[in-house]
Design a protein around this nucleic acid. Structure first.
Lengths: 117, 117
DNA sequence: CTTCTATTCAACCGAACAGTTGAATACAAG
DNA sequence: CTTGTATTCAACTGTTCGGTTGAATAGAAG
């Protein structure tokens, strides 16, 4: 599937294990083995989780001998923040204006409005 | 499945159609039929998408005769913002400190560090 | 009561997902 | 060259997901 970037980022972070990995990588880079330690799943499963994070652009990997240290690309999170902010702000703006309208016409006995769809 | 709230919100917004619905609901409430109009899927599919958004707490629904107007609960988005900010900030902080360290010791011929894990 | 409109429920389908086991690859080191 | 460690690839499995069709419910209106 070739989902857009934002969809990949969001669905990558929809998983608690992957969010926890990101949280731990915010502290510093780590190898696959180190990352896998706290979870009760196979190393292969962790490797797959990392691939999902990598495909979303959330992490990158160096090569250090047989190790593949994982690095958090924190800027990608801004993609989400940008999307969220836009619509949260738009919604807030709307409420603000609705409030104003309601305040500016305090008494208007609302008729049954039968033909009002 | 009983995923935690944040996971439900993120996975709800991992779908482009549902993100688009949220975007349109930021402009104002809408009925299921109105919401369905732009998409080339059945009404039932749209109804399912709305259920996902509702289970995530992202929308609520009134009852207006046979219509069920959908309303965006924009505050829920703050949940995501809070999570993101925390780790992005943490990562940034780390780089800032790393930069300082690197600047404070400008010349140190890095040895091969053979026993350095 | 019947019909029309709006919406949901139920059952089903194929694709994607998260996990598993087992084999393979990539290096380091004896 | 052989062994050990770190990681990934491949194949399989059960579950979830986004969609479908068809039937059901809720209320407005003739």
């Amino acid at each position: 599937m070739v989902a857009d970037r934002l969809s990949r980022v969001m669905s990558a972070l929809a998983d608690p294990t992957r969010r926890d990995m990101v949280a731990r990588l915010a502290v510093g880079d780590a190898t696959v083995n180190e990352l896998a330690a706290p979870y009760d799943v196979t190393l292969q499963a962790v490797s797959k989780h990392l691939k999902v994070l990598e495909d979303a652009g959330l992490v990158s990997r160096r090569r250090d001998a047989q190790r593949r240290p994982v690095h958090l690309e924190a800027e990608v999170l801004d993609l989400m923040t940008a999307w969220i902010d836009r619509y949260r702000r738009q919604a807030e703006e709307r409420y603000r204006r609705l409030d104003e309208v309601l305040r500016s016409m305090p008494d208007e006995p609302p008729p049954p409005t039968p033909t009002d769809r």
